[in-house]
Amino acid sequence: MDSFAYGRASGIEDALAEGSGPNTVFLAGGTELLNWLRLGIAKPERVIDLTQLTGLAEIARLPGGGLRIGALARLNDVALNDDVARGYPVLSQAILKSASAQLRNLATIGGNPFQKTRCGYFRAEEALPCNKRNPGSGCSALNGINDRHAIFGWNESCVATQPSDPATALVALDAIFVTVHREGERRIEATDFHILPGDTPHIENALRHGELIVGIELPAAAPHSAYLKLRERESYEYAVVSAAVALDLEGERISRARIALGSVALKPWRLTEAEHSLVGVSANDNAAIRKIIEGSFGEAKALTHSAYKITLAKNAAVRAVRLAARASP
């Protein structure tokens, strides 16, 4: 790691005041930032430690339904919280599958969406040609090893995917990220948090410099929800493809469906078309569900080695709908 100066925020105001300074980053769980520092992906001059801030790790019920989760809540504490586990199984499952128990004891729910791609070119121990890591240097994965890369929303500047499991669940749940900044608070829909590469793949999310997520709001409970994560190793591995599904059911009929795919694009990918078409369909009608989901992949576009992920993503979504329907509140 290059040298940096370490400061400890005593309060949110303190963090926001200093966080807008040049070459300054925030430190929460540290499970990503320390690796970026070691790899040279981040080279800050100042690191602001947020972990001693108080009052930002609570999980509280919102009046009128829903939950508010403090950004500094550790992943395990979120996943194992009764209200989360019962009301939002998709989130609980996504968190428990996201990393090892040790990592989940460090990582925070507010920090997790900031995870960067697992693209091997981006993560190398030295800088390889990569527009995300070094703008203008090209995308090595476009015609290289891209079997774990995007099938949606990519362009020639970047074909990477966003790997966060919790973020995929949060997108399926229509969660809101509550942020603060020197210039005021904002509420950002989870689905608008990550941004597609465009011409600036190094810009990964909608936050302004110095802006902090302080809480995550979940709307009404989604007990019929499930998270399916596919990978060749059973645990402690990033997804090849994942699917987060939340259903509202009237009897066996689907009255609302929300489906987000993970590790298929630089943001969790909602299957909006399928979500509309699934309304009124029986949750037990596997053939109809499959047909609808397969029909919603019009925008999918394979790279040289990622075509199989299209099939896998369709199958994962179909299966996750079934798992969600069977989840018992």
Binding site: L27, G30, N35, D49, A101, Q102, L103, L106
Partner: peptide
């Protein structure tokens, strides 16, 4: 040294964590 193996597991305030991912300062 990247949180990928668990060999550095210690208990921090009673919870198991990868000590390679914690700054001593923190």
């Amino acid at each position: 040294n990247f949180g990928e193996c668990g060999a550095c597991t210690v208990h921090l305030n009673g919870r198991r964590v990868n000590s390679c991912l914690v700054l001593a300062a923190s």
